[in-house]
Amino acid sequence: MIEVKNLTKSFGDHLIWEDVTFDISDGETLAIIGKSGCGKSVFLKHLNALLYPDSGKIYIDGKDLFNLTYAELRLMRQNFGILFQGGALFDSINTFENIAFPLRYFTNKNEEEIRAEVDEALELVNLKGIGEKGTSELSGGMRKRVGLARAIILKPQYLLYDEPTSGLDPKTSEEINELIVHMADKLDITSIVITHDMHSVLSIAEKVAFLDEQKLSWYGTVQEMKESEHPPLVDFITASEYQI
């Protein structure tokens, strides 16, 4: 379980958001939505302590994330997988090695076991047989899927997605959405998805957090969102030209 308590973040004099509080239960899929530049990605990086807040706490399974030693934090991070916006694949190694990377350093698996696990992960993201391709040969959608395969290779408890469908065509976006649902079901993972794509939200999320005006403006289930009359949320949904 992830508990976010009174989180506040600013860069210099610029306040990003303040006093953000909510919980994410195990196995849930939460979508964090909001306008571009409202600090969604910044928030995601706090969940993995890649960034630290000005004040507030995040508890992961009861442990205070920002009070862990660096050694404890590194262990904690192995419970998380992150799909970065551009995939963040290591361009000095090929697709196979990108996915095998955490296995080589954090497990004692032999080459045969590593190959089997990477092949299984590639199959899971519908990219069987592309292991030998260089990362520069991959399309945007393929990069995200390879990033996803790498994110799940250590079988994390939590999976964080940063704009998983941005820059993709509607068909590929739909495939990525299906993958996110599939991952949550098959691997029983708690997922947090940063997005401004309302189609994605309705396809994948169970709960929604709406960041607006430097605070958590609205929080609830997808059904509650559909029925909500909260003006900023309604404006955001209307502006996204998505008919609920």
Partner: peptide, 17 residues
Amino acid sequence: TMRVSEQIDALESMGFN
């Protein structure tokens, strides 16, 4: 390049120093 393309964040997020 690794920093701006989030490759360093990816390393840290996996538990690497």
